[in-house]
């Protein structure tokens, strides 16, 4: 797998603040992977998201996307076409007066000819399952539907990377499922790289790698199994331990001879069953 995005020793400070929001952050993201970025409020994870497509520019260091640099003004717009962001509040990123107009907004900005635009809208709206709603007004859509429209808008731009900036945190469980399933399909079938800023444990557990941010620094980066078995790391980052890890630990306390923590229910059931039939 090749590197699609590189953050090289980036530091960033908001003008009104005294403290750095990001301190010497270095990481790289592989083509086609699903990277979850987690950490408690104020850990710098949302700031990081905004640096990835040049909505914020680093004070030092640089951000590189497929060989283009956000600090290079001539390349910034191409980076924004390739890196789409779905933001947290479904309402505050819906620009058009209808689904169709909203998906068109990005294409209009990038000067896509009208015939091509219509073709791309029709195609991308199908990928998010909103083709029945093309003429619907935004205030008649649910939060999950609005987020799927936002995804369609990005998809129409033929992106390489989709960033979810806490995109499911204001949704109900059904909306969350809808959105994640949509993005998962795009990740699997189209090979679009996903970087997801999230508090959602389930989501982090099912990603390829997890990045934990703490006080503006990268505090850990690794496979979910490595990250979530480190309880103190997780609690420091203001997160909850996954259910199956908690249960594994409690079972050991109760004297069940489990040798390690399990991340998913399926693994734990299997381990218990092996244990039981072995004894």
């Amino acid at each position: 797998m090749s590197e699609i995005l590189k953050v090289n020793d980036v530091s960033f400070k908001y003008p009104a603040e005294t403290e750095l929001a990001l301190k010497n952050v270095t990481l790289s993201c592989m083509k086609g992977e699903w990277l979850s970025v987690t950490g408690h409020n104020g850990s710098g994870k949302s700031t990081l998201a905004k640096l990835l497509n040049g909505l914020l520019l680093p004070d030092s260091g640089n951000v590189e996307v497929e060989g283009l640099f956000t600090t290079n003004m001539d390349e910034l717009w191409e980076i924004r076409r390739r890196v789409g962001v779905v933001f947290q509040n479904p309402d505050n990123q819906f620009v058009g007066t209808s689904v169709r107009d909203d998906i068109a907004f990005g294409l209009e900005n990038f000067g896509v000819p009208r015939d091509e635009m219509i073709r791309r809208i029709d195609e991308s709206v199908k990928h998010v399952g909103m083709e029945q709603y093309l003429d619907q007004e935004p205030h008649l859509l649910s939060g999950g539907q609005k987020q799927r429209v936002a995804i369609a808008g990005i998809l129409a731009q033929a992106p390489s990377i989709i960033i979810l900036d806490e995109a499911t945190s204001m949704l109900d469980p059904m909306g969350r499922k809808e959105v994640l399933e949509t993005v998962r399909t795009l990740n699997k079938e189209k090979g679009i790289t996903v970087i997801s800023i999230t508090h959602d444990l389930e989501e982090a557990l099912h990603s390829d790698r997890v990045l934990v941010m703490n006080k503006g620094r990268v505090s850990a980066l690794g496979a979910p199994s490595d990250i979530f078995s480190n309880t103190s790391l997780i609690l420091d980052a203001g997160l909850d331990t996954p259910f199956s890890v908690k249960l594994s630990q409690k079972l050991r306390e109760e004297g069940v001879p489990l040798t390690r923590d399990y991340l998913t229910q399926e693994e734990l059931v299997k381990a218990l069953w092996t244990l039981k039939s072995g004894s």
Binding site: L55, W77, R80, R81, F87, N92, G106, N109
Partner: peptide, 15 residues
């Protein structure tokens, strides 16, 4: 809302 919308518009290539 205005602030977030402006950011979202910029992110989608508005200039």
């Amino acid at each position: 809302r205005a602030e977030e919308l402006a950011l979202a518009m910029e992110s989608r290539g508005y200039r």
